[in-house]
Design a binder for these strands. Structure first.
Lengths: 217, 217
DNA sequence: CCTTAAAATGAATAAACATTCTATCTTCTT
DNA sequence: AAGAAGATAGAATGTTTATTCATTTTAAGG
């Protein structure tokens, strides 16, 4: 590949990113359906037709956006977890990384949270499938960490998958309120300790059992 | 008010419910934007024009639906919590009731979960505001229970509001995976114990502090 | 049974918007 | 510098769909 072609590709990629960046901002503000291609074109400073040279259609653009960010997050998570020793520390790291990433990608996470528990049509569509798999990979990752912790006696014997989902829920809702605040008060990572404590103490080997759960309905 | 008029009102209300019921089923399957008024009309066995005698517009219909169900849930929750003594038991009851209600209102909760962390536009619009307030009332309720528990020594000193959000997140994500399963495996209430245990042990007065949270980023 | 008011109908309307298409402009090659 | 190849533009297209409205149907009261 000639240097000339390389530069072409770089420039193409740069333009693509500019479009995605404009789209991110708009999707995050108005959601998928309330954002029009015309809006995106204006914001990205391209003509409408041009957008279609970069993305097959609106949905493709949306999914590309989500996918690339989720993949980046996944890489980050994996990298940082590798450095920790116990399951406890790994999960704590996971929580920290994810909140920190949300902290630095506010617009994207507004989309992410909507996406996560929102769009039926996405889960169904061929594209959505791709994103869905990435989410599940993250849940599975946590589930495995929990399993690891159970095996070496850090945690009591809980249903690892259910527990992994619960953790994701806690993180999502925590990110959600933070995102809704405008302007944001403080940083999101500050909440990491709270989530870590609740979760890790919540599944730790318990001295006394929690009895409240046994009252009749 | 004459008996005649009363019957009229009853019938009107019944028709309204039929429309809402059709709408619920469709919104839950396809989401707000992918459900057309024509679809709803056909499913409810009314003409399109008729829908507008019951609801100002599509959004009004949607919000009415969510609002009525959330209000029903709120009443249920309050009723059952009143019967419990400790904060611990009250929160356990809250978890149980909510999961049980979701169990029996699958279609609605598919909408509810999307709604909760989904629609920016809803939060902004005048109608959405109404629903949003109901959600917040629920969060506040839990926050107060947590506060109560802190004061009488059941829980350690946590940020009650943040913790309340975390609980809602856990419940939402738990409901979410259950809702996505088709057909649903088992009942959702079965998960109540798990959530109760994680959460209550998670915020309980701890013997040893969880140290994992303190490693550097 | 006839009148009148209310309720229901569904075709017509109009706006929104994703996508396409052709003309125009850049950039590269020779 | 000419012209080919590719990129960009933005107006035009066609579809979808919420909402309206003129008309018909239903039901109540006298």
């Amino acid at each position: 590949m000639t240097p000339r072609v390389q530069r072409k590709q770089r420039e193409h990629e740069a333009r693509r990113q500019e479009i995605l960046s404009a789209a991110e901002s708009l999707f995050s503000k108005h959601g998928f359906f309330k954002t029009s291609m015309a809006d995106i074109a204006i914001n990205a400073q391209f003509a409408m037709g041009t957008l279609y040279r970069f993305f097959k259609n609106k949905e493709d653009m949306y999914i590309s956006l989500v996918e690339s960010k989720v993949e980046e997050l996944e890489r980050l998570v994996k990298k940082h977890i590798a450095g920790e020793s116990t399951a406890c520390h790994k999960i704590a790291a996971f929580i920290r990384i994810k909140l920190d990433y949300a902290d630095r990608n506010r617009d994207f996470f507004r989309i992410y949270v909507s996406e996560w528990s929102g769009f039926e049509w996405t889960v169904k569509s061929a594209f959505g499938e791709r994103v869905w798999k990435l989410y599940m990979a993250q849940v599975d990752l946590v589930a495995e960490l929990v399993q690891e912790g159970i095996q070496n006696g850090e945690f009591r014997d809980v249903a690892s998958r259910d527990v992994a989902f619960a953790l994701h829920g806690m993180l999502n809702s925590t990110m959600y309120i933070w995102i809704l605040q405008c302007p944001p008060t403080g940083s999101l990572v500050e909440k990491a300790h709270l989530i870590q404590n609740i979760f890790l103490q919540g599944i730790a080997k318990s001295q006394r059992d929690v009895k409240a759960g046994h009252s009749a309905i």
